[in-house]
């Protein structure tokens, strides 16, 4: 946990300073300037609607004596909103879990799978990876390099459609007693109906080929740099497939991932992991309290 805190603190160093000093300046005037708070939240991609909601609730809920008071109320408010149940990242090693990974182009799906594989290998899982991105040039090679790095087996077949590759992979995972199967899908814009239907088809094929002893999870990958379009991404993807959890990537820059936080709150979905770099161990399990603390402390 300490490692997580440190990583996150480092990662969010800039944000933290930003919010901290801004909150100080709010109190510098001895009266609370909610416009400044609005600015801070907007800058973190929390979005106008969500920001206004937070400010309104904050106005209603408390009287603030000082900065600390204000800080705590804000923290408590955010913490109360976020879904804290990310147990769906704690997988049962005694049965097979199938995790389907999807998201828009360039959100970091393949890299995240590489890092997730490393994470679960360290917990003793026997992992199989299915390369169902039969569209992007060299996508399977990228995945293969990750698989080699992690010494995991990979199922691929360029001559087949993604759903058939998924089907093959599920069969192999069952027969060869794997604990965990990652399905890597091609990046697709949520506005492209044909590609969304393709994803749905992969999803259906997997669902049909499993029984109650196998757990299937769908994780949406969202770029931490995304703005309000992330809402649309969530909305559209969830029309075609059930979403069980979210992963925010690329949080090692100056972006704060506020748009994903907002999605998680609005749809009551857990954020499972944060991606904070390109190395295989640059993935941390999401801890709501630490995340919010790092944002606001």
């Amino acid at each position: 946990m300490n490692i997580f805190k440190n990583l996150l603190k480092e990662t969010f160093a800039k944000t933290k300073d930003n919010i901290k000093s801004s909150i100080k300046s709010i109190f510098g005037d001895t009266k609370i300037n909610f416009e400044d708070l609005e600015e801070i939240l907007l800058k973190s991609d929390f979005g106008l609607e969500f920001t206004e909601q937070i400010i309104n609730e904050l106005k209603k809920t408390s009287n603030f004596n000082d900065e600390k008071d204000f800080n705590n109320s804000l923290k408590y408010l955010l913490l109360n909103k976020i879904n804290k149940n990310n147990s769906n990242a704690d997988l049962d090693i005694n049965k097979l879990t199938i995790i389907q990974i999807f998201g828009v182009n360039g959100s970091g799906k393949t890299t995240t799978i590489g890092k997730l594989t490393n994470y679960y290998i360290s917990k003793g899982f026997k992992i199989l990876i299915a390369s169902c991105d039969t569209f992007r040039a060299a996508a399977n090679e990228q995945l293969k390099k990750w698989a080699t790095l992690n010494e995991t087996k990979i199922i691929e077949d360029f001559s087949k459609d993604p759903a058939s590759v998924a089907f093959e992979a599920v069969k192999t995972a069952k027969n060869e007693k794997y604990n965990l199967l990652f399905i890597d899908t091609a990046g697709r814009l949520h506005t492209n109906k044909n590609l969304m239907l393709e994803l749905q088809k992969i999803d259906n094929v997997i669902t049909k080929s499993i029984d109650e002893n196998i757990l299937k999870l769908n994780w949406l990958i969202v770029d931490g740099n995304s703005g309000q379009n992330a809402n649309k991404q969530y909305e559209e993807f969830s029309k075609f497939v059930k979403i069980d959890g979210l992963i925010i990537t690329k949080l090692d820059g100056t972006s704060k991932g506020g748009s994903v936080f907002q999605i998680a709150v609005n749809n009551n979905k857990p954020i499972l992991f944060l991606g904070i770099g390109e190395k295989k161990d640059n993935l941390v399990k999401f801890n709501p309290e630490d995340y919010i603390n790092s944002l606001l402390e």
Partner: peptide, 29 residues
Amino acid sequence: MTGQDAVNSAKAFHEKVDFDGVVLTKMDG
């Protein structure tokens, strides 16, 4: 699809490397 942070990255790339123009991708979304 980039959010508020676009200005930070653009500014940094401008200051540290500098560029002559911008290309906007994924505009079909």
